[in-house]
Amino acid sequence: MAAAAEMAEQGAAAKGGGRKKLILLGAPLLLAGIGAGLWFGGILPPLLGMGPPPASGAPAAEAPRRPAFFEMPEIVTNLNATGRRPVFVKLRSKLEIGRAEDAAAVQAAMPRLLDLFQTHLREMRPEELRGSAGTQRLREELRARAQIAVAPPAGSTQPAPQVLDVLFLEILVQ
């Protein structure tokens, strides 16, 4: 009978050990499930300071500004061609500027813009304008020159107008 009593105590101890294992494995899983629910429910990130800042009485942020387009005058100039026959280029383009308010600054810089565009075009050879790669290089060069032309003078407190791109309406090499 003593043997039967010892077996009963070991069985009871084994059952208690199973409960301990269940609690030790179940508690972390339960906590992870609750944490995931709070995270994906959107409750936990603001509590951890990871959400957007709380709304205050300040006015709402401005809507994102849309770029504006400024029409450039038509440019007709000769290219740097070898041989006796002159080669001309006719260019119609638009400047994409960051804000519509910058159109006045671009208009004021128009003489400098035209000068920089024409001098660059006069130095180009007709071969350099062939293909999409040539057109892309011309676009990048003209955009860089336009940005230089519309920049305010040194020491000015006005923000510089931003030239985002040069869009070609017509390029004719003849």
Rank of each mutant, 00 (worst) to 15 (best):
M1S: 13
A2K: 07
A3C: 05
A4E: 13
A4T: 09
A4N: 08
A5H: 13
M7C: 04
E9G: 00
Q10L: 15
G11Q: 12
G11Y: 05
A12V: 03
K15N: 03
G16H: 04
G18R: 08
L22D: 05
I23G: 06
L25G: 10
A27W: 14
A27V: 15
P28W: 11
L29C: 15
L31D: 04
A32H: 10
A32G: 12
A32Q: 06
G37I: 03
G37V: 05
W39V: 04
F40V: 02
G41V: 09
G42M: 11
I43M: 09
P46C: 05
G51T: 07
P53N: 08
A55Y: 08
A55C: 05
P59D: 07
P59Y: 09
A61P: 06
E62C: 05
R66S: 10
P67W: 05
A68K: 03
F69Q: 07
M72C: 09
V76T: 12
T77V: 07
T77G: 08
L79Q: 08
L79G: 06
N80C: 04
N80A: 14
G83E: 13
R84D: 10
F88R: 09
F88D: 07
L91H: 04
R92Y: 05
K94A: 11
K94I: 09
L95I: 01
E96D: 03
I97M: 00
G98Y: 00
D102A: 01
A103H: 01
V106F: 00
A108Q: 10
A108V: 01
A109C: 02
R112T: 08
R112S: 10
L113Q: 01
L114D: 05
D115G: 01
L116P: 00
F117Y: 15
T119D: 14
L121K: 12
R122L: 12
M124P: 08
M124R: 15
R125A: 15
P126K: 11
P126E: 13
L129M: 13
A133C: 01
G134Y: 00
T135G: 13
R137L: 12
L138C: 02
R139Q: 15
E140L: 14
E141H: 09
R143Y: 04
A144E: 15
Q147N: 13
A149W: 07
V150D: 01
A154W: 07
G155Y: 04
G155E: 03
S156D: 14
P161K: 00
Q162E: 13
V163Q: 00
V166P: 00
L167F: 01
L167D: 03
F168Y: 02
F168H: 01
E170A: 06
Q174S: 14
